[in-house]
Each structure stands twice: as structure tokens, then as C-alpha cells.
Simulated scan of single mutants.
Amino acid sequence: MKIRELGISGAFEVTSPQHGDSRGLFMEWYRFDRLAEAVGHPLRLAQGNLSVSAQGVVRGIHFADVPPSQAKYVTCVRGAVLDVIVDLRVGSPTFGQWEGVRLDDVDRRAVYISEGLGHGFCALSDDATLSYICSETFNPSAEHAINPLDPDLAIEWPAEAPIFSDRDKAAPSLAEAKASGLLPDYAACQEFYASLRTV
């Protein structure tokens, strides 16, 4: 298993070897010990989600209040998506930057997204199916969104006519969310990450 940190601190790409023969294949798509070694603390498994999307659907950019927020470990078990991570932590050296990783059912990569980072994706195929595990259960009162078409983010969504939910279309821009105090603070996130290492 190869785990590498992306250009945004706290975001990791995970590539696992696949062992195949005429019967099919086997792989370890998640290893708590390897991930904990790379991230600096274990991922608490509190909830598992499955998301199925038609081609061209964009979901996100979503994030949650820190603490506790929601760390996510995401993989695509059917089809393909462009998975997008956005640094929403005010004061971060990469604040407002985004990075995309193709997740599909061929290479079977995964991404780990730390608390305080924004997450979204664009379905590149019909029935694109994401499976992801989260460090906390869903808390609607602590969940927020940033408009995925915010020109300040300038995310290059790979869809001619992206399909968004009403919630995501109505979400504030990055600047609006920052001005209203909605975004996570980078220093507070660092303190929270440190607290997880002592658990």
C-alpha cells in the first residue's frame, strides 16, 4: 500500500496493490495501521456511506464544524469520479486551493480527507458509486457547503453541463463563508489533529 500526501496538508492518496487471476481479484483497500502511520493518528470508524450518481452529477463542496468535523476515507467501487479536496481552513498556507484525484474501479485508489477540508466530486460515468467511511456520524446542524461554481475556487469540473442539488447551488461563496465566520480555523484544526494523536 502506497500512501502519499497531496499538495494540501491533511489530504492523502492511497494506492493499494491488486492481486488478480482468472477468478477475479483481491485487495486491501483500507489498513488502519498504514493510514495511522501516514496521518499521525488512527481513523475512528463511526459511519459508512454509499453514494450513487449519474454522469455529470457534482456533489459538494461539503465540510463540517471542527471539532469534531468528519474525516473521510473515500473510494470508488463502480465507475469513475473526479474527487475534489478543497482547503477551507482559514490561515492555512494552501487556503482556497483545490486538488483533484481520479477514483475509479480500475486503479481503485482511495483518498483520505482530514477534518476541516472541503470535499466534493464529479461523476464521470453513470452509476458512479462511492463508498466512504467517516470518523463521526452525520450531524446536520454542523454540516455546511461552499458553492462548487465559486469563481474564486475555479474548480475545473469535468462535465459539460454539471448537475447540482439545490442546496449546493444556493451555497455561499468561499469569501461569503469566510466573512460570516463559517469556515474552520487552521490553527484550531492543527490543535484538533494533535489531540487525536494522544487518543
Rank of each mutant, 00 (worst) to 15 (best):
Glu115Ala: 07
His41Met: 05
Gly60Trp: 10
Pro158Gln: 08
Pro17Arg: 09
Arg102Ala: 14
Ala188Thr: 11
Glu156Asp: 14
Val66Met: 01
Glu115Leu: 01
Ala154Met: 03
Phe95Val: 02
Phe32Gly: 11
Val66Cys: 02
Thr15Ser: 14
Asp126Thr: 07
Ile85Trp: 00
Pro148Arg: 04
Asp168Lys: 03
Pro140Met: 03
Ile85Pro: 01
Val106Trp: 14
Ser22Asn: 13
Ser131Met: 15
Lys178Tyr: 05
Gly120Phe: 08
Thr94Ala: 04
Val90Glu: 01
Ala80Phe: 10
Leu124Ser: 10
Pro67Ile: 00
Gly20Arg: 07
Ala36Lys: 06
Arg31Leu: 13
Gly7Trp: 05
Arg102Gln: 15
Leu130Asn: 11
Glu115Thr: 10
Ala80His: 11
Ala36Phe: 06
Arg89Ile: 02
Leu182Pro: 04
Leu82Gln: 14
Val39Thr: 06
Leu43Gln: 07
Trp98Cys: 04
Ile133Tyr: 08
Arg59Val: 10
Pro140Arg: 03
Ala46Gln: 04
Ala177Ser: 13
Leu174Phe: 04
Glu191Ile: 11
Leu124Ile: 13
Gly7Gln: 09
Pro158His: 07
His41Gln: 08
Arg4Ser: 12
Ser180Ile: 11
Ser125Val: 12
Phe26Arg: 06
Arg4Val: 12
Gly96Leu: 03
Cys122Ser: 13
Ser195Tyr: 02
Cys76Val: 14
Asp168Leu: 04
Phe164Ser: 01
Ser180Tyr: 14
Asp152Phe: 06
Ser180His: 15
Val84Asn: 06
Arg108Trp: 09
Val81Met: 13
Asp87Asn: 00
Val84Phe: 05
Gly60Ala: 13
Leu174Ser: 04
Leu6Ala: 02
Phe121Asp: 13
Leu117His: 00
Lys178Ala: 09
Val101Arg: 10
Asp150Trp: 05
Ile61Glu: 00
Thr94Ile: 03
Ala170Gly: 03
Leu43Met: 13
Asp87Cys: 01
Arg34Met: 12
Leu88Lys: 00
Gly60Ile: 11
Ala170Trp: 00
Thr75Asn: 07
Ile61Thr: 07
Phe121Tyr: 15
Phe12Leu: 01
Arg34Cys: 12
Tyr193Gly: 03
Arg108Met: 10
Ala187Val: 12
Trp98Val: 05
Ser173Pro: 06
Tyr186Phe: 11
Ile3Gln: 02
Gln55Lys: 14
Asp104Val: 15
Tyr112Pro: 02
Val77Lys: 10
Glu5Ala: 05
Gly120Cys: 11
Gly56Lys: 00
Glu99Asp: 13
Gly79Ala: 12
Pro158Asp: 08
Ala179Cys: 11
